[in-house]
Each structure stands twice: as structure tokens, then as C-alpha cells.
Design a protein around this nucleic acid. Structure first.
Lengths: 192, 192
DNA sequence: CAGCAGAACTTTACAACGTCAAGTTCACCG
DNA sequence: CGGTGAACTTGACGTTGTAAAGTTCTGCTG
């Protein structure tokens, strides 16, 4: 029953990333600060330095966590649509869109020009896993060059999601998923 | 012909925005700082406060200037393509893509979640002018709902440009414009 | 079990930032 | 000529990222 703490509780690194995700979700990418995640985890402002040598490292870890949740959002939406490959692709897009709308700060951080360590293995793996989902749902429609199909689907859902998230002139459509479904139908996918 | 300076040279506000654009272009959105633009313009660190009550106002002005250059980039590319409406639309997309690649920082700032004063009249006008270009080149393909067509074109070029700018897994294709031309061809545009 | 090496964390410090409050200089108008 | 207000400066405060040095705990070795 001693109050023995290693120094912190169990895993400070994970607690810092969790706090960072919360900060980014509530206050946008710029709300992420070393001192705030430290305070949220109940440690001194310099404690994170041991796990994240600089703010860029912390950002990288938060973005990587973002990609994991992003992948989960797409997988969950795909699981809802068990019919045609087209349904699966559209489902992935819904998961894409839902994630972007639910986590605008993380989404912006993941796909913006925020400096991250793009060579970080953890980030690379998380991002590659996301891309693999996209490649998987695109495969049934692949033409001469599969990358063309992947990029067509990726571009249209990414553009749509980005515009839906930004405050920029995107019409406040009542049902964005129905709207996107029409746009998706305009894509001439082989063997749709 | 006297060397009289009012206090500064001619137009400090414009000089600050110009310096801000340069900062954003070279160092990304976060490199924009009141004190740096003040130093670049050769005034004290508090001088900008008179023209921009806060950093958010300065950001807004820089983003508005970004939209103006963005519009100019699209118009220039449209002017190169004087054939079919399809050529004009594709040209606008090229201008879109070129701007994004040439000014990644500005592009991210314009379409990211950066807090700006979206109600600012100057910004509104600049953004609306950009949207008008898009609506213009989309008009020839309009179906039942013109917005559907605009959004289809906007989404695919915006997504493509965003992905091309980000460090995210976008294949370093040798000729992005040729690649996009193929994607654009997959769009089933009415009366293409 | 003793003791030490190193990891984990704290404390202190510094420069740069946004912003506020005063003070100063200049332009312009009566 | 005088004074009013805009344009700009100076100084200060709190917050940030980061470096350096000190302290406490962990775990392993002998």
C-alpha cells in the first residue's frame, strides 16, 4: 500500500500522447504544447523531453495516433457495408469523412504542412496502414495502373473531406454523405 | 523630394502582409510572427498592432493575399487553354495545382483549420472570387444541380493538390499534371 | 543484500513570442 | 501657431520551447 510511483504512473509517454490528442481535438493543431501535455499528465514541464526530444517529436507521435484512429474509422465504416466492392469503397470514404469531421484538428495536422518527422517508423507504419486500406478497397476497380484508381478515389474523398472540414465556403449541406455519394457516382470506375 | 517619412515609408500595412507572405512561404504557417514581420519592415515589434490588432488579423490578411494569388494562378493557367470548356476546366486545375506546389505554406493556411477571421470582408471577397472561377469553369458541365459539378471538380483537384503538397505517401510522380489529367478524365462530366 | 549506473523527473534559466500600457514623434487642420 | 490624433517606440508581463544541472527512483551486478 505504499505510495510508490516509478516516477510517474505507468506509462508517461502514452499519457502525453493521449493528452496531446485531446488538446489538438479541442483547440486545433497549435494548441498542442509540451507544457500543457505535461500539466495534463501531472508532471513537470520538462518531463516530456525525455520521451520526446522536441515538440516536433511529440507532434509526430500525435499524428501517428491520428492515423491509427483514422484507419479504425475507415475499417468500421467498411464493416457496415458488406455488399458490393463499390459499397465497400463508398463505406471507406464515409469513414474518411466521419473522421475528418469528428477530428478536424487531427485531420489538419495529418495532412497539412505541419512539420513532423515523416521518417519516424511509428508514423510511417501508421500512415502505410491507412494507405493499405485505400489500396484494398480500390483494387477491385484497378485499370491499367492501379495507382490511378487509388489516387482518383483518394483525391475526391480527401478533397471533399478537407473542404467539408474547413470553414471555406463549403455549403452547409444537410447530408454530406448523400452529397458525396452523388459525387462518387460521377467517378467512372472500371468494373464498378 | 524631401526625405520625409510619415513615420515609416509609404504603406506599412502592405509591407507587413508582404513580409508575412514571404515568411509563410519559406517557413510554413507557424513561421508567421508579428515580431518578424515588424523586423522585416524595419519597425518596432509593436508597430503592427496599429494595423492588425492581433496575430489572427495578420493571418487573415496574409490568407486573403494568398487567395488573390491563387485566383491569379488559376486565371493564368486558364488563359493558356483556349480550346474546349474541358480544356479550360483542366487548365484551372493546373493553376490550382501549381499554386499549391509553389506555395505550400499559403495553401495550407488557406484551406487548413488555422484560425482566421472568416468574416473579414477582404478575405471573404478574395475567397469568393476564387470560388467564382471554379463556378465559371464548371458551368458548361452543370447537371441538375450545378453545385454537384462544382464540388466534384473542386474535390478532386483539391484532394489531388493537397496530397501532392503534403509529405504523405504521394508517389513522387514525374509529371503530376499528366497524372491528374488521367484522373480528371475519369470524371463523368455531362456534356464534356 | 549493497551499491552504483543510468533512466526518469524536477528545478532553474533564457530567448522568443503575443499582447498590453505608456510614452513619443509626426502630420494635418483650425 | 497650437493642439489633436494617428503612427510608432519603449518597456513590461505571462507563456512558450529548450537547454543545463540537480535530484530521485529503478534495476542490475557483484
Amino acid at each position: 500500500m505504499t505510495d510508490k510511483k516509478p516516477h510517474h504512473h505507468g506509462n508517461l509517454r502514452a499519457a502525453l500522447v493521449e493528452a496531446g490528442v485531446t488538446l489538438v481535438q479541442t483547440g486545433g493543431p497549435d494548441a498542442l504544447s509540451i507544457r500543457k501535455v505535461a500539466a495534463a499528465a501531472g508532471v513537470s514541464h520538462a518531463a516530456p523531453a525525455h520521451h520526446f526530444p522536441s515538440l516536433v517529436h511529440l507532434r509526430t507521435a500525435v499524428v501517428a495516433e491520428g492515423y491509427r484512429r483514422f484507419t479504425a474509422s475507415m475499417e468500421a465504416a467498411i464493416a457496415e457495408a458488406t455488399d458490393t466492392p463499390r459499397d465497400a469503397a463508398l463505406g471507406a470514404c464515409f469513414g474518411y469523412l466521419r473522421f475528418a469531421r469528428a477530428n478536424p484538428g487531427l485531420f489538419d495536422m495529418m495532412f497539412g504542412t505541419k512539420d513532423c518527422l515523416y521518417d519516424d517508423p511509428d508514423l510511417r507504419e501508421a500512415a502505410d496502414t491507412s494507405y493499405a486500406v485505400l489500396a484494398r478497397i480500390s483494387a477491385p476497380f484497378a485499370g491499367a495502373d492501379p495507382v490511378d484508381t487509388e489516387l482518383a478515389i483518394w483525391s475526391i474523398i480527401h478533397g471533399f473531406a478537407s473542404l467539408a472540414v474547413g470553414g471555406n465556403g463549403m455549403h452547409e449541406a444537410p447530408d454530406l454523405e448523400a452529397l458525396f455519394t452523388r459525387l462518387f457516382a460521377a467517378l467512372d470506375l472500371n468494373a464498378g
